[in-house]
């Protein structure tokens, strides 16, 4: 028990060190593009953590997380199209907008359970998707180009891919620490307890709906941060970010990495995007490999690929 716990404690730190050195590795090996790819992976890791908070800890299978990501992305994109570029304003704006969206839709979605929850979050995600495609003032179907990356205190340091990577890595670490504190807090304990036995938690006097709505909102807000970063990374915003297949991919990342671990989803995001990058480089029809692989994993290894690192599922 102690040995697994210690291993689980050291592994993230070791990986963080490797991650911090990554741009150097990329440049020394003559592949500076690796830094750009890695930034994208880390951004999706943030989104995956946000989903794990509700999926892994709250057992709420949200199929609309890409909608929250997209709102964050569009907040940055729309603000930029009006000339507002300051990252210390637009990133919090992205967080706020997605959090607000999750709060409002959560009032309906969180009241429901199981399949209803899946379908409702799916529908709300699609609602945002279609809304974005009909926003003709902001590019509609074609998307919206973000002409320059967000500034930090007015300086354009994020234009440098290495600085941007470091920025994303720090935010990922912060989100990870925050999420860990959150699930370990009394608030988080209520969420996990309610997953195991709703009636008992209810009879102890906790308002489960309020707790679930809160974690759903927080999760959406973090997804919004990921979206804001994604808009900066691609310097482009498009409705495709919100397509429900993106939500499905996020679920795949979380489940393959091992849900309810916070660390697993990071690994899942890296693995999924890495696999995508490699397979797509070989063959345009790479999904024909990914699909059956996914089916096999679900049928044969329900615990996810991360289950060998940490089997604790409180």
């Amino acid at each position: 028990m102690t040995s697994t716990r210690r291993r689980a404690g050291w592994l993230p730190l070791a990986l963080f060190v490797v991650a911090a050195a990554w741009p150097m590795i990329a440049e020394m090996s003559g592949n500076p593009f690796w830094t750009v790819l890695a930034s994208r992976m880390l951004i999706f890791a943030i989104a995956a953590i946000s989903l794990d908070l509700i999926l892994g800890y709250g057992a709420m299978v949200s199929f609309g997380q890409a909608g929250a990501v997209g709102i964050g992305a569009y907040s940055v994109g729309i603000a930029a199209s009006h000339g507002l570029n300051e990252g210390l304003i637009v990133l919090p704006l992205a967080v706020l907008a997605s959090g607000l969206f999750s709060l409002v839709t959560g009032f309906v979605a969180v009241r429901t359970r199981g399949v209803y929850f899946i379908m409702i979050t799916l529908a709300f995600g699609q609602m945002i998707y279609f809304t974005a495609t009909s926003l003709s003032a902001y590019g509609g179907d074609d998307g919206l180009t973000v002409w320059s990356r967000s500034t930090i205190f007015g300086s354009g340091i994020l234009e440098d891919e290495r600085v941007f990577y470091a920025f994303v890595l720090i935010l990922l670490a912060a989100v990870w620490v925050l999420a860990r504190l959150l699930v370990a807090s009394p608030f988080g304990k209520v969420i996990t307890a309610a997953r195991q036995n709703e009636a008992r938690v209810e009879s102890l006097g906790f308002d489960i709906f309020a707790h679930r709505l809160a974690i759903y909102t927080i999760s959406g807000a973090i997804a919004g941060l990921a979206g804001g970063l994604l808009a900066n990374h691609a310097e482009f915003v498009s409705p495709a970010y919100m397509n429900w297949q993106r939500s499905g991919e996020l679920i795949v990342m979380v489940v393959l990495g091992g849900m309810g671990t916070l660390f697993g989803p990071i690994a899942g995001a890296l693995a999924y995007l890495g696999l995508e990058h490699v397979l797509a480089g070989f063959w345009q029809h790479w999904r024909i490999i990914l699909g059956p692989l996914l089916i096999l994993v679900v049928l044969r290894a329900p615990g996810g690929l991360g289950s060998f690192i940490k089997t604790r599922r409180t």
Partner: peptide, 28 residues
């Protein structure tokens, strides 16, 4: 038939895999 009685999350994931596979197969 292997998914009957399984968790809804498993069903969602596996059928999502079926979508990816068959959409791509149609494209091919």
């Amino acid at each position: 038939r292997h998914l009957m009685g399984r968790d809804h999350l498993d069903q969602v994931l596996a059928t999502f895999g079926v979508i990816l596979t068959l959409n791509e197969a149609a494209r091919m």
